[in-house]
Nucleic acid binder design. Structure first.
Lengths: 351, 351
DNA sequence: ACTTGTAATGATACCGATAACATGCTTGAT
DNA sequence: ATCAAGCATGTTATCGGTATCATTACAAGT
């Protein structure tokens, strides 16, 4: 470890510059309050001592940490990484730092993280999802800071929300496949009986099956296997299960593009023609979905925008200069978009 | 924003339990120091008040924040996301929180982030890469905390290092392609004249060309185009450039699997057979590389392990109970592994 | 000339915890 | 019975900033 020279404090700077601590603080926080000559003297002292202000002390005193807690299922999903990056980007000009935690799709882990994060006294909490444990809900309610639930549209938002309806995504997917004339329709999702659950994926499946039922079709081809997070292998595996159960399946909706890509590659390996023999669609509009040959039909979510919009909303809410009674829209729906590409085609061509 | 009930402090807890603040602090930090009966009383008071200790105040007082700064090029690269997750995982039992910053491959941005992060008084810094601005180097040296440079093997480490030799990776790639009998060999990388530079990718290219030269071949087919980070499109684009320059190219090394996948898909679109017409390999062993048809030959890096090893090293160094003169190995080389899959084959079969 | 306003700076009192040392009370060895 | 050692707990003094109010000096208005 490099040798530690005792770090200079604001007091050291103030002595060297011949002013009070308060003046140094002002130079840093609001330079216009200080005359040019003293400001220059202070700046020189800061330079000479390589002074770096201690934000820990500053936070304690001002009761503002400039930390934003972001709780996501996992970092290794490019959608959520995009959201984190968008959020960080939006908050950076105001010098906020993200505290990122990931739950691995476990609600108890989410609760644990919220408890740990609250001890850091963040200025706001951003959390993916609208379902939380009772204790987690209570902690967030009592925290007295802005809360933003993202990536879904909550029935009863704790505070703010930025997202889209996963249920409607599922419905849109089913309507697309029905409109193409398919009747033997399946879906690929993950199990809901483990400790890791993809609740938003399940909402999409729920929306999906609701349309199937309305069309007089059953949901027996909706596969739930493997635990969240899904992987390419998950797509290959569940496709195999589905094909075993129904070799005549015509169209499939995967709850994630990752599964869809895995399923597509498995089709290549098995010699199943997509979309000739089988239509396939995913969700999320991951880069890889567009690159595949053929490119995968999907439902596009602007994940980065969810982060950016959340950041902008927080900047407004947290701005001290804004009237304290100002309350922005509680819920923002960023919507979604069906992107028809090469993996879905009308029924009845081949086979 | 939910209504704010004034948060309970340690003092409130101590009064309710009829003890001093110090006893409450002990119950939280080292319960064994307190008798069972008082401990129970204190716990009950904590429960009743829903007390959450303020780590900001605790950090100021103890001069330990339990923050670890992690500086990575981008979060939206699954390799780096894996590293971040591995690091977070390793540090979590000891209750460390990651402060993640991303540089977008810009050294000036890295410097800015380091400056900002130091104000948060992290207990250690983890930074991807071994090249930094002069000011960044000085700041890290003066910080008096452990520094770990990761994802490469530094000539002159600031402190600790956990990584592998990118230069050797490039050499291994070239040797593999040469061994297959190829002579017209190219590579796909990114430009080095912008403000965003992939220095580790460039090291791989340098190692790659060093072998080409030793074999009496030129480096005129080493393409550097587009700015870091590379994308699927980057692979497609640079493949096009390379084919235009040398339609007879036999084998290609892409500095990243992302580029390799993009190039492979472009081959599919152009009807170029891989590996029949063209051998192709990448770097990083991304999930998607294994899924592609054919699966992509690559060089495997255990990105998560880099994070985990870094975390374990830091836990040792930061452990107060360890003898203060204890110094673990300065540099850990996690190595790499060539994974031969379906996209590389001996020369001279077709064409 | 006197009041009033404003710009620049200083003095004081915390913010909510922990480190370090001090104290009182048992307990066991001699 | 005496005293050192050790356990359980308390007291005091920071940690390094910012909020708030006070002070000083000088310019402008009447």
């Amino acid at each position: 470890m490099p040798p530690s020279s005792p770090k200079a404090t604001m007091h050291d700077v103030s002595r060297l510059a011949g002013v009070s601590k308060m003046t140094v603080s002002r130079v840093l926080a609001d330079p216009d309050l200080v005359s040019e000559s003293t400001r220059n003297r202070v700046m020189k002292a800061i330079e000479q001592l390589s002074y770096v202000p201690d934000r820990v002390a500053g936070s304690l005193s001002s009761r503002r940490t400039n930390f934003i807690t972001a709780i996501l299922p996992t970092l290794t999903n490019s959608n959520f990484a995009d959201t984190a990056q968008g959020l960080a980007e939006a908050m950076r000009p105001a010098d906020y730092q993200l505290l990122i935690g990931y739950t691995m799709y476990r609600l108890e882990e989410e609760e644990r993280i919220i408890r740990a994060m609250l001890a850091r006294r963040p200025d706001a909490i951003v959390v993916a999802g609208t379902t939380h444990t009772k204790a987690a809900n209570e902690m967030m309610l009592r925290a007295g800071i802005p809360i933003v639930e993202i990536w879904d549209t909550p029935q009863h938002p704790i505070d703010h929300a930025v997202g889209f309806s996963n249920y409607e995504v599922g419905r849109a997917a089913a309507l697309h496949l029905l409109a193409l004339g398919h009747r033997r329709i399946g879906a690929l999702g993950s199990r809901m009986d483990g400790d890791a659950k993809d609740l938003r994926g399940e909402s999409r499946l729920a929306g999906f099956t609701s349309v199937l039922r309305e069309a007089g079709l059953g949901d027996e081809l909706v596969i739930r296997e493997g635990l969240a997070p899904v992987s390419y292998d998950h797509g290959a595996l569940t496709l195999g299960i589905l094909l075993e159960r129904a070799p005549d399946v015509q169209a499939i909706f995967a709850v994630s593009d990752i599964s869809a890509v895995g399923a597509l590659m498995e089709c290549h390996r098995r010699g199943i023609k997509v979309p000739g023999d089988l239509s396939l669609m995913g969700f999320g509009d991951f880069d890889i979905a567009r690159q595949c040959v053929p490119a995968i039909t999907t439902i596009r979510i602007d994940a980065e925008q969810i982060g950016r919009r959340t950041g902008e909303l927080l900047l407004q809410v947290l701005d001290r200069s804004t009237a304290p009674d100002y309350t922005p829209a509680a819920a923002v729906n960023v919507g979604f978009e069906l992107v028809t590409r090469g993996t879905t085609a009308p029924a009845g061509k081949s086979r």
